[in-house]
Amino acid sequence: MTQLLQLEDRFQARIDAEQKIEPKDWMPDAYRKTLIRQISQHAHSEIVGMLPEGNWITRAPSLRRKVALLAKVQDEAGHGLYLYAAAETLGVSRDQMYEELHAGKAKYSSIFNYPTLSWADIGAVGWLVDGAAIMNQVPLCKCSFGPYARAMVRVCKEESFHQRQGFEIMMTLAHGTPAQHKMAQESLNRWWWPSMMMFGPNDDASPHSAQSMRWKIKRYSNDDLRQKFVDVMAEQAAVLGLTIPDPDMHWNADRGHYDFGTIDWKEFDEILRGNGPCNKERLDARNKAWNDGAWVREAATAFAAKRKSATA
């Protein structure tokens, strides 16, 4: 047995024994690369995700809603920061990850390439998008890589108010004036299917899933999580008095789950290719913030260097 195979076996044995892998531990190159890719994409999603919701901060309809939304979008900055830091333990810098994002080479969650067109969208994003995100994220708290798992514990703890915030907005609108109810339904119509796509391709079309499950980076399959989401949301939509825009959605007593219709993966693929309604705006906004901030970062760096040499 070669030394490498021995190391790999020992590594997998540790994973199987539910031990955490820490940054300085030996790990297969592919494990490191997978994690860097996944954690940085996750971080990018948080940062880009600030934009569609940030879009409504200045238009929030009450002061209570305004501070809640502002605090929520700020949390997303924090979550991006924790996640970038987790990836940095693997030997990649935050600036390197930014470069990939800004150049359009890195992926982030496609959902954020949809526009927020009404105030109800802030409710729908909180309720559906954060709802889907939480389902994806809770299992990550037990991910085999220590820094990622710890970051996710913090993220999930903070995130718990986000979905409630969204649901409360939807509840208020759905039980408000007829115009507000209509606003809520229209928003659900637009956000439902994109939220369903957040769990990624069907299991038979998801090439990396098996390895990620073996490494315990991923704990549940895309389709299992999606089904869980459907089951939960079907009941919550009923509480709201809103209709999920899927005529094929029915309770299936044999399966003990809700059946649902087919996802239009063509739309998903187009967005991945950069053809979503807001791909360009999102990337432009990130690039602009980064480029406009360059002189500020240079100034702070220069200032610190001056003070350091003055005291040295």
């Binding site: 924790y82 830091a85 940095e88 702070a300």
Partner: peptide
């Protein structure tokens, strides 16, 4: 220990 961040000084 709670996490990391970036700062000039």
């Amino acid at each position: 220990h709670v996490g990391s961040l970036h700062a000039v000084d």
